[in-house]
């Protein structure tokens, strides 16, 4: 395949990945990896390098809007970044010694878990009383709504912090934003309102991904010629997806895409297990 054909296919594929990623809430990076490895035969190390770079671009781009609106809880984000960056550094160092088949199989299972989780019905939390540790860390805050700011509390800081460490590790190991795990940590464990947890998770991804990207860069995972079409394509696709999301709540589309993603994930697990990846 020539450089031109490869770049064009990748650009198109990355656009689709970004679009599906934004509709399902999984993120484009997680979908571009099976495309690169299974379809285009790219080594998984280059694939996770390119995916991680696209995670930094999309999350910083969309975080910008939420931060300006004041929905993001920056103290919460900063505090939990201790766990995610430490996990990410560990994950990235592990990625350089782990066998590629192990990475492929773990990636497949993570993708299935995230896809199933994206279909789960989200329940809205809003606890009034915070735990003493949350108060000491000044984590409870407010978020703006059309009818004025709403205050929310925070619970189970230690549990959420540990889950964030795991999310960071998966991010560094697999080159993904691991938004699903971050939202579980904040939503299900710390009982933070959905709007705050999604935007804060997005805000944290850039810093988390950069912590492992620096290691990827020095080990040669980041191949500029692969990253360029991936980053631009994913970002364009994600922006288009966000526009579609505003107009409709494509519930049926989400189920459809989740099935496709699970198919891709099973393919990666199979290829990893038989040693093709």
């Amino acid at each position: 395949m020539t450089v031109l054909t490869f770049t064009l296919i990748l650009l198109l594929g990355a656009c689709c990945a970004g679009f599906v990623g934004s509709l399902t809430g999984l993120g484009g990076g997680v979908i571009i990896i099976p495309l690169l490895t299974v379809v285009l035969g790219v080594d998984i190390h280059y694939a996770i390098g390119a995916a991680l770079v696209s995670v930094i671009a999309t999350s910083s781009g969309s975080a910008a809007a939420y931060v300006r609106e004041g929905i993001t809880n920056m103290r919460l984000g900063m505090f939990l970044e201790i766990a995610t960056t430490a996990g990410a550094v560990g994950g990235a160092l592990l990625a350089s010694v782990a066998p590629t088949s192990f990475i492929a199989v773990l990636f497949g299972f993570t993708l299935i878990f995230s896809a199933l989780n994206s279909l789960r019905k989200k329940e809205e939390h809003n606890v009034k009383n915070s735990s003493p540790l949350a108060l000491a860390l000044k984590l409870p805050s407010t978020y703006p709504t059309p009818s004025g700011p709403i205050a929310y509390g925070t619970k189970n800081v230690v549990g959420g912090f540990s889950m964030m460490g795991l999310a960071g590790m998966l991010s560094g190991l697999l080159g993904i934003g691991s938004g699903a795990f971050k939202v579980i940590a904040m939503d299900n464990i710390m009982r933070i309102p959905f709007k705050v947890s999604t935007t804060t998770s997005n805000f944290m991804m850039g810093v988390t991904a950069t912590a492992s990207a620096v290691i990827y860069l020095q080990k040669g995972y980041i191949e500029p010629d692969i990253c360029m079409p991936v980053v631009i394509g994913v970002l364009l696709g994600a922006m288009t997806g966000a526009k579609v999301l505003v107009r409709a709540n494509p519930k049926k589309l989400r189920v459809f895409f989740a099935i496709i993603i699970i198919g891709l994930a099973l393919n990666m697990i199979y290829n990893g297990a038989v040693g093709n990846i």
Partner: peptide, 19 residues
């Protein structure tokens, strides 16, 4: 990059670890 290398062949199947 595309302008200078468009007809070259890609070879990303094998990862070369750098340091």
């Amino acid at each position: 990059y595309l302008f200078n290398h468009e007809q070259e062949l890609v070879h990303y199947g094998n990862f070369v670890e750098k340091d």
